[in-house]
């Protein structure tokens, strides 16, 4: 219910407004940009950012950050391919293993942050390296025999399959949006999250289990990164090195554009999801304009700054 407060709600609406505006802009430049298949394709790409952003949103809401996203995602992509060997019969086992790996990496992040007092930036940065080293080392730098495996058909169907005219991955993302939003707004866990984000000491003294909540949130972040990695393999067919790299900054940008305060305590996943759509739509518009890579990169940064200046200011005393 925190989202219903006016300034917060405004930020979320602004993020959705930006997304709609970009689609309109795209349609003006390139007829057919706002057609159903095009929108659906853009949303599908956005869903990967959106899933990573779900986890990132959770940890940013408590004033943390997860820099381990790129390699947790990448390792998940490698793991789902190598453990399933592209066979449906092994898919469930592979899914459980991969999601478990993501959650475990997040759990380790949370545990070190809570119990060892390592700053979140440092711990998740280190975890990114740890997972990277393990992924590279164990896969022999993606030279292993199983590394060339494709995603099992089941996973590919979970992305590309169409239900009521909409790709399955979008249904999945919609379910995640609803679930995460519900958790944040209407559950104890959500209340605890906001309480910790606003003032963890006060939350602790009010009986909130700060340690457990924090660890769970980081575990969720790892889980969502792994889920995105699985779906990306389902989307593209195979795992590759470096496929997680874009998702760190994109997930943070989506969360911030969605009106979540980087300092924690304020914001909602509904906004972050809109942020993911806006970002992806922006890139698509620029591609439609045949903008070279450097131009996209510059405009990407400028747009984030513009949106921040519009509504991301720190409040004064």
């Amino acid at each position: 219910m925190n989202a219903v407060l006016s300034p917060a709600a405004l930020r979320i609406l602004a993020a959705y407004g930006a997304a709609v505006l970009l689609f309109v802009l795209g349609a003006l430049i390139h007829p057919g940009f706002a057609s159903f298949p095009s929108v659906s394709a853009i949303l599908l790409i956005a869903s990967f950012v959106g899933l990573v952003a779900a986890g990132q949103c959770f940890v940013i809401l408590i004033g943390g950050i997860d820099l381990s996203v790129p390699w947790v995602l990448n390792a998940a992509a490698i793991l789902i391919a190598t453990s399933s060997l592209g066979e449906n019969s092994r898919a469930l086992y592979a899914l459980a293993l991969t999601l478990g790996m993501g959650a475990l990496a997040g759990l380790a992040n949370g545990a070190a942050i809570v119990w060892l007092g390592v700053p979140a930036v440092v711990m998740t940065l280190a975890m990114n390296g740890i997972v990277e080293g393990l992924a590279l080392g164990l896969s022999g730098g993606m030279t292993c025999a199983a590394c060339a495996s494709y995603a099992p058909p089941l996973v590919r169907a979970a992305v590309h399959g169409v239900f009521l005219g909409v790709p399955a991955a979008l249904w999945l993302w919609l379910a995640v949006i609803l679930l995460v939003s519900f958790v944040l707004s209407f559950t104890r866990f959500g209340r605890a999250t906001y309480a910790i984000g606003n003032n963890s000491r006060a939350a602790f003294l009010a009986g909130v289990n700060v340690s457990l909540t924090t660890i769970s949130l980081y575990a969720l972040s790892g889980l969502f990164a792994a889920l995105a990695g699985i779906l990306l393999v389902g989307f593209g067919g195979q795992a590759s090195l470096g496929m997680g790299a874009p998702y760190l900054f994109q997930s943070i940008a989506a969360v911030v554009i969605g009106g979540v305060s980087i300092l924690g305590g304020r914001g909602h996943y509904l906004g972050a999801a809109a942020g993911a759509v806006s970002l992806t739509a922006l890139v698509s518009v620029l591609l439609a304009l045949n903008m070279p890579e450097y131009g996209r990169s510059i405009i990407y940064g400028v747009v984030i700054l513009a949106l921040l200046l519009l509504y991301g200011r720190e409040q004064r005393e």
């Binding site: 900054f249 131009g295 990169s297 510059i298 990407y300 940064g301 700054l305 921040l308 991301g312």
Partner: peptide, 27 residues
């Protein structure tokens, strides 16, 4: 300027300018 006068959070400002500077470098 963005952090000082714009009162924006350093982490998000520099995330955005990172993208800008990277673009310029490739240009």
């Amino acid at each position: 300027l963005l952090v000082g006068l714009g009162r924006l959070q350093p982490i998000v400002v520099t995330l955005a300018t990172l993208s800008i500077f990277q673009g310029l470098a490739i240009r």
